[in-house]
Design a protein around this nucleic acid. Structure first.
Length: 381
DNA sequence: CGCATATTAAGGGAAGCGCT
DNA sequence: AGCGCTTCCCTTAATATGCG
């Protein structure tokens, strides 16, 4: 296998790995195959200690690939492996965790239920306390199972609990439900379901001309309450911080259903804000095989360094050590475009950061004017 | 061949964002 | 204030490599 690993790193992009979206019966079949293969090893005349071959999810296995239909580059993983070995004390538990989670997923699939990662954690805590002590272990093991079976997390019957919200010029219809007008959902908007199956079946109509992604819920509420979408025909969407899978998936659905609409992002002017933008744009390596599926070609509307003159000097606050750490990793990223890196460099040189709320200095209505101005000038990168 | 060093993977911790 | 979700960073352990 060693030779395979080494040689396949040099394969071209058609050999990249990805996670399949599968019906429950197919996932169950893959689990059964995995179990049978493992049992074969155990019952062979010369029982060998087994390694579980998993797709490597470290950053050194990520590849940048040009999408065919968009100019957005996306994160893929190439076909190199890491293993969970039964040989060593520490990794043996991780090995067993994989089987425990797989067993739990199988039960879920048989019952045709869906659970959240959190639910799964509590269940495993009850049934296998020797192996599961933290949510983190569960989350990582789930990604191990995804890497082993090469099917999406959702196919395993695991739902993302969602935080996201949508508002604006959008009509949504869930199967067998009334049409929902997202203009009339109030300032908190329409809550995005964590059930990706449901999101996939949504019937969507819009007369918007822009999709605006907002980092913070507070800003989203402000814009929704002011009905900004009546001035700027737009759809507002927020994930309330780092985007969860459901929000990214819905945004991805938007970009497929309405490919002519530009996706514009409104974020704080600090490294963390840009990191959130990048999670929308490229996906995250930690999500492993599923990263690419939810990427979209989002543009950076604001805040950017050209906007700093719009706010009072006292609203600029010093960068924290944490900001510098994020800045460092952003600058060293291979996929980040140069004009983004220049913004980061400006943050580091000035040692300062700014929040969107600083624009309220000119009154609550200023935010809408600011966005409208930038859009008509096509001032986004 | 034995030892010291470099590289790599896994775990734990912390941080930022928001919610309750 | 605590929690959930996400990410990133640092420490540690184990393996691979280099050198005399």
């Amino acid at each position: 296998m060693g030779d395979l690993c080494k040689s396949s790193i040099f394969f071209s992009d058609q050999h990249l790995c990805y996670a399949d979206i599968l019906p429950p019966s197919e996932v169950r079949a893959r689990i059964e195959v995995a179990v049978v293969n493992f049992l074969k090893i155990l019952s062979s005349p010369t029982p060998a200690i087994s390694d579980l071959p998993l797709i490597n999810r470290r950053s050194n296995n990520s590849r940048v690939s040009q999408g065919l239909l968009t100019d957005a580059s996306r994160i893929f993983l190439s076909h190199s492996f890491c293993t969970r070995s039964l040989m060593r004390e520490n990794t043996a538990k991780a090995f067993i965790r994989v089987w425990k989670v797989m067993e739990m997923c199988y039960q879920i699939l048989v019952q045709e239920k869906r659970v959240t990662q959190r639910e799964l954690f509590y269940k495993l805590l009850c049934t296998s306390p020797d192996y599961f002590t933290s949510q983190l272990q569960v989350n990582r093991t789930i990604q191990d199972v995804v890497a082993l079976l090469m099917c999406s997390r959702f196919s395993l019957g695991i739902m993302a609990s969602s935080r996201g919200a949508v508002a604006g010029r959008l009509l949504l219809q869930e199967p067998n439900q009334e049409v929902v007008d997202c203009c009339a959902c109030g300032s908190s908007g329409y809550a995005i379901s964590g059930n990706l199956n449901l999101l996939e079946k949504l019937v969507m109509k819009t007369d918007a001309r822009y999709i605006i992604v907002v980092e913070k819920h507070a800003i989203f509420q402000r814009l929704a309450e002011d009905c900004i979408f009546n001035q700027i025909p737009s759809i507002l969407i927020t994930a309330k911080g780092y985007p969860d899978i459901a929000t990214r998936f819905l945004l991805h659905q938007f970009s497929k259903a309405f490919p002519e609409l530009p996706i514009l992002g409104l974020f704080d002017w600090n490294p963390a804000g840009l990191a959130v933008l990048c999670t929308f744009k490229f996906g995250s390596i930690g999500m492993g095989l599923e990263a690419y599926r939810y990427a979209c070609n989002i543009k950076w509307l604001g805040l950017r360094r050209d906007d700093l003159h719009l706010m009072p000097e006292e609203s600029l606050v010093p960068l924290k050590p944490r900001d510098l750490q994020i800045a460092k990793s952003l600058v060293s990223s291979e996929i980040l475009q140069d004009n983004y890196k220049e913004e980061v460099a400006t943050m580091v040189e000035s040692g300062q950061r700014a929040e969107i709320e600083a624009l309220y200095f000119h009154g609550y209505n200023f935010l809408g004017k600011y966005i409208a101005n930038k859009i008509v000038q096509a001032n986004y990168i």
